[in-house]
Design a protein around this nucleic acid. Structure first.
Length: 298
DNA sequence: AGCCAGGAGATTT
DNA sequence: AAATCTCATGGC
């Protein structure tokens, strides 16, 4: 069958656990879960491809191309790359689990969600918009906001009476002004920032490739925070979730501080210095530690 | 009802 | 430099 692709899975992977994680997220509009499989519209350079992802045995992912009928080899590779990035499939988690299973803070979460990968946001523009839209608001509302944004400006295809959305392109957003986003319930400043970032991406001032070439998290943070609307928290979010740096500790993240407070049963939130000390023992795996700690919040 | 959300930038001390 | 104000809206 030439409408199937497969990806061989790494050892520490549990499809059902990852599926449950996606199910439990507030509606992101970017995928559907049906019959224990994930359906998502993936953007390739030659058009949108609707894909269905599942796994029977945790040895391989089976990707079924639902639409269109035929896609090029190049598109197939883009899809494989996207999914590999999305589920962080290149990462060997054995050392992390060795570290975490003996750690008094992480052991319990890691046991509960064993086989969960750090679910990423492969598309840089999506990651930037998601971060900016969700600055300083609760997660549930943030998801709703992101959804409004997607359904206002994103493309979609309808398949078996279900609409599948893709995240709005920066080309499209670059042509907008604040008035077009009047119905999006966020600050005018965030709208300006998003449009401004879209323009910078459209003229290739900001590209994922350029950032990756800097090859140094601190330099990337420095570069990103030059852009209006991107502060330290957003830059770290991008490093973790979109550029896939494994050792980012988001000490500026309120949710993370709350998670630690809760697990450690502290009377108040730990301060930055305490968190830095804590993360010291998770060196090289800070991003995974943070991702699993966030799991304790919902 | 009122404080707080997986912040950031501007303004004021 | 560091503290404080402002933004915009929903969740609880």
């Amino acid at each position: 069958m030439d409408n199937h692709l497969t990806i061989t899975l790494p050892s520490e992977f549990d499809f059902q656990v990852n599926l449950n994680h996606l199910k439990n997220q507030h509606d992101t509009c970017l995928y559907e879960i049906k019959n224990e499989s994930i359906i998502r519209l993936i953007n390739t350079t030659k058009g949108y491809v609707l894909t269905q992802i599942n796994s029977q045995n945790n040895h391989e992912l089976i990707i079924t191309i639902l639409h269109p009928q035929k896609i090029s080899t190049e598109q197939k590779n883009e899809i494989l790359n996207f999914i590999t990035h999305w589920f962080d499939l290149k990462r060997d988690l054995v050392p992390f689990y060795q570290l975490a299973s003996e750690d008094k803070i992480l052991a319990s979460v890691v046991h509960t969600h064993y086989g969960l990968r750090h679910i990423g946001i492969p598309d840089l523009f999506e990651a930037l918009c998601s971060a900016i839209l969700s600055q300083q608001i609760n997660l549930k509302f943030a998801a709703q906001l992101k959804c409004d944004f997607i359904k206002s400006f994103g493309d979609s295809i309808t398949y078996n009476d279900t609409k599948f959305w893709s995240f709005p392109s920066y080309e499209k957003i670059a042509t907008l002004s604040n008035e077009h986003m009047a119905h999006i319930k966020t600050t005018d400043r965030k709208k300006e920032c998003i449009i401004n970032i879209a323009k910078k991406m459209a003229n290739k001032t900001i590209t994922a490739g350029k950032l990756i070439e800097l090859n140094d998290p601190e330099l990337i943070v420095k570069e990103l925070t030059k852009v209006k609307g991107i502060g330290p928290w957003t830059a770290e979010y991008i490093l973790m979730r979109s550029l896939r740096y494994p050792s980012i500790f988001p000490v500026n993240d309120v949710g993370l501080l709350n998670a630690i407070q809760h697990i450690e049963n502290l009377n108040e939130r730990p301060n930055k210095q305490d968190v830095l000390t804590l993360f010291n023992r998770w060196k090289t795996w800070e991003s995974y530690a943070a991702f699993y700690l966030w799991k304790t919040l919902y």
